[in-house]
Structures are given as structure tokens and as C-alpha cells.
Amino acid sequence: MLNIKNLWVLNIAGVEVWITETIFNTWLIMLFLIIFAVIARIKLHNFKTVPTGFQNFIEAVVEAFDGFASNALGEKLSYIAPWFFMVFALILSCSLFSIFGVRAPTADFATTFALAFATFILMFFMGFKHRRGSYLKSFFEPHPVFFPLNLIGELSKPVSLSFRLFGNMLSGTIILTLYYGLTPLFVQIGIPALLHAFFDVLFGALQTYIFVIISLMYIKGAAD
């Protein structure tokens, strides 16, 4: 489980496209999330004023995340909360997916870097949209000499954001792989559940929260 397995090699117009374990698992999670979203969308027609059951759950989750985002961002910027709700759902289901003993897509640097790079682009976009000239000027703040330093500081944000999530998920994967590889068969029943609860559920939920709140902090810092 240390190496990312390659499942198929597609040949599209002479270019080899590798379908790795990560891509396949991400597709499964996307399928699950999309089906869930479609069910929620269909059920939206017969939602009532007083929520019960499924509607109650959906409303509680969305309201909790909206409150959390507008708390971190302020009312003016909280219109980007849906994007981060998507990121939250994706990373959380990715880390919970590894409970089934498969490799979590977030234990691949490509996935985490893609998510962090999206945050980076969003940060620049929000900065330009809300502050225009003064955002550019903030790169030359105390003095123009500091421009390279400020630029490195901005460029290191997606790197640290992605490495944090990747390192945490990879360390859980490595420890579980070592456990499964080194112990005899009779201790592999029951005891790994504790390790999975600690490394996948607890760390996964904590790192998801941290990824989202640090992204929100970066965007608030750029746009305010």
C-alpha cells in the first residue's frame, strides 16, 4: 500500500493515460457524492416548513457549515461558502473511505495539491475582485525591496496547505500498512478498528476542518 498501484493504462491518441488507484477511488467517491446530491435535489421539491428526517439532516449540515463559514469569513465574503462545503465533503469522504482498507485519495500528493491550488487561485481572484489595486500594492508593502519575500510567502501557502493534509493522511496509511504487514493474522481482527478510528476518522475529520479553516483564513486575508 506504500506505492500507488496502477490499474489500467489507456492509450488516447498516442498518449498514455494512467488510471491509478487514486483516480479510481476518487471516481467512486464522486459517484457517491453526486448520487447523494441528486437525491437531495429531487427531495427538495417536497421539503416542508417543519423539517423531519432526511430534510432535517440536510438542513442541519448546510446551516452548520454556513454559520461556520460566515463566522470565519464575515457576511460580505460568505458567498463562497458552497465551494468550501464541496471541499469539506470531498476531503471528509476521502479520509473516511480508507476505513474499508483501500488507499485514501488524499494520501496522494496530486489530490491534495489540486485542492490547495484551487484555494490559491481563489485567493488571488478574491483579492483582485475585492481590493483591486490595493491587493497588488500589498505585495510591495513596507518597501518594494520586500517584493521577492512577499511573493515567496504567497507561493508557499498552497505548498504548506497541501503537504499538511498529504503528510497526515500518508502517515496514517503507512502505519496501518506496517501493522497489516508485520502482525500475524489472528491480531488483525478487531484491533485495527481502533487504529482506523484514530488515524482515519479522528485525524481525517481534524485535518479536513483545518484545511478548510486555513483556506478561509487565507481568503479573508487576501480579500479584506
Partner: peptide, 15 residues
């Protein structure tokens, strides 16, 4: 939690 995550970064880099 934010402080813990930020100070964890150097440990992750070492790993």
C-alpha cells in the same frame, strides 16, 4: 486547533 496545525507543519516536512 489552527495553532496546532500550523506548528505541525515542520514535523510533516521532516516526515
Amino acid at each position: 486547533f489552527i495553532g496546532l496545525a500550523l506548528s505541525e507543519t515542520s514535523g510533516i516536512y521532516g516526515l
